[in-house]
Design a protein around this nucleic acid. Structure first.
Ligand SMILES: [Mn+2]
Ligand SMILES: [Mn+2]
Ligand SMILES: [Zn+2]
Ligand SMILES: [Zn+2]
Lengths: 123, 123
DNA sequence: TATCCTTTTGCGACTAAGTTGCATTAATTT
DNA sequence: AAATTAATGCAACTTAGTCGCAAAAGGATA
């Protein structure tokens, strides 16, 4: 298990269990947001979905993990970083992380999801 | 039935049925995006959800209606207008329509959903 | 080490928004 | 009128995520 992940849990006062480090390790190595099925596939150990979702909920509440919903009605997860947007192509379903700068907004923004057609699919 | 709605259907070559005008009439009078249950409550006639969703899907494909998902995992619908964003407060679950101006974006944007905490809940 | 207590996990049953198949009805076409 | 096509209602289905509960893990105390 990566020391980095152990530290991350300890900083947030979360016990480091196999299930938890397993989830975080996959997310650490992810190049893009992943859903439950995708994370499960990449995990070395088997894990029940109840365990997965309960731990994810904990990570979320602690601000370790961020989630949003794609157009397939599934939740996608990534390790928290600076607030950025996700562009979801309704044709090819690819998810792209991107920075946008919003103007005046009606509150504190935690998640930005744009849906539409990506440049490749448009062309 | 409103003449306006009849015209809307005819312009898109959609037969005007009771079910269809009933849905559109509710959306026409809506002050904010509404989900299936909310629309159903406001409708004069009873309507099966299969009929509702099939017609909504048709409206969407024709560009008459726009939908997005809130944090309650339900779809919210509104009559199409100029592209604008929806701010969803994760505390009070209120949905606010708003204009944002994005900078450079990776494709053609059709839907913008911001989630976070609204000013009232923040205070 | 033995006992107690709290937290985490796995399993299976459950929930609920939205979908689908199919038979019936309504509207068009010939 | 008969034939064809489109819209509707109903019930069964799908499926991402949730929940209750009992078993396991683990830490604290003695
Ligand atoms: Mn991202
Ligand atoms: Mn709106
Ligand atoms: Zn695309
Ligand atoms: Zn609020």
């Amino acid at each position: 298990m990566l020391q980095q992940i152990k530290t991350l849990c300890e900083q947030h006062n979360v016990k480091v269990t196999n299930a938890r480090s397993s989830i975080l390790e996959v997310l650490k190595n992810a190049g893009a947001p992943m859903n439950y099925e995708q994370i499960k596939e990449k995990m070395k150990m088997p894990m029940d979905k109840a365990t997965f979702y309960r731990n994810i909920a904990k990570f979320e509440s602690l601000g370790i993990v961020h989630k949003f919903e794609s157009d397939d009605r599934k939740w996608y997860f990534e390790l928290s970083s600076t607030t950025h947007a996700h562009f979801i192509c309704e044709t090819c379903h690819q998810i792209t992380c991107m920075d946008v700068h919003l103007g005046e907004v009606a509150g504190e923004v935690k998640s930005i999801v744009l849906k539409g057609t990506c440049k490749e699919c448009k062309a």
